[in-house]
Simulated assay, not measured.
Amino acid sequence: MENSNLPTDELKKYGIIGEDHTFSKKLSAEDIQKFLQGYAIVADNDKNRATFQLTNNNTQLKVIFLERDKSLPEILKNSEKRIEYSDIMEFSNKLPPELPALEKKAFIFDQETGKVAEFDFIRHTTELTAIIADLRDATETGRYKNELLKLKAFMQDKLEAELPPEIAKEITSDLNIISKEIGTVEGILTKQHDNSQKQEESDIQLNINDPDLYQDSNRMREEEELEQEEKRRFRR
């Protein structure tokens, strides 16, 4: 092996190398070379994903386990009907298991390309909010706001735990992003509700001034008056 400082015990634990210190046959020569250069090895299994990456001059192994709330095929299928949201829990060998990280994603189907685009709630917040606003759908905007509130609550709960300062700082920064975006979305919802109310009022006004409806109403009133007159004559 080229690097004698590799964390062999951990590499054996995860099956990346065998007892003879040779890399798994599941890895190609290119995979191994990239791995030694700092690239991550990714292993997917339905809802789960694991990434392995060498750090600190290849002396330590960074391991991250991701658990989706839904399988990727299910997410892609659902996204063809409406915007699909998914939570990904992240467990790291650098953090206690009771303090996982959470990634929230939005999957949006592009009718023109026939492809599904993935948006992260932190990295693509502004872009995602703009897409939702362009839909001009209060129900969809409300769904988005609820997902933002869930993420905010998760972050607030995590900040109450004892975290390393650098991690707490990162979460606080993300929390500020989400809190700001919730305010933006609430403003969008207010405008959408106002526009909807104005449209309803406009529809009512159009109905009142509709000449056809006015003539129909007069005709019905005249018919009722004739009917009442006929009844009075009959009683005589």
Rank of each mutant, 00 (worst) to 15 (best):
I204V: 05
E170N: 14
Y214P: 02
Q192R: 00
N176I: 12
E200D: 06
A161I: 00
S173Y: 11
K198C: 11
T172R: 08
D174F: 11
Y214H: 14
D174W: 08
N176L: 07
E200A: 06
I177C: 01
E200C: 00
I177N: 10
Q197W: 08
I167T: 04
I171C: 02
Y214G: 06
E200I: 12
P164T: 05
K191S: 10
E181T: 13
T184C: 03
D194V: 12
I182T: 10
I177L: 10
D210L: 07
L159S: 00
D212F: 14
K169G: 09
N176E: 11
I177Q: 01
L175A: 02
I208T: 12
I167G: 03
E201Y: 10
D210M: 03
Q197E: 07
T190R: 11
D212W: 10
N195T: 09
L189E: 14
Y214Q: 15
P211R: 02
D203R: 12
A168G: 12
I178A: 03
H193K: 15
L163E: 11
E160M: 03
A168Y: 05
E181V: 06
Q197Y: 07
A161N: 14
K180V: 05
I208G: 09
I167M: 12
N209L: 10
E160S: 15
K180Q: 11
L175W: 07
S202T: 10
L159G: 03
E181F: 04
E200Y: 07
G183K: 04
Y214C: 10
I167Y: 14
I182E: 01
I208H: 10
Q205R: 09
N195P: 05
D194C: 01
I208D: 08
K180R: 13
N207G: 12
Q199I: 09
G183S: 14
K169V: 07
Y214V: 14
S179G: 08
E186K: 06
K180P: 06
A168E: 07
E201C: 04
E162M: 04
L175I: 02
L189A: 03
Q197T: 08
I182S: 02
D194Y: 10
I188A: 01
P165V: 06
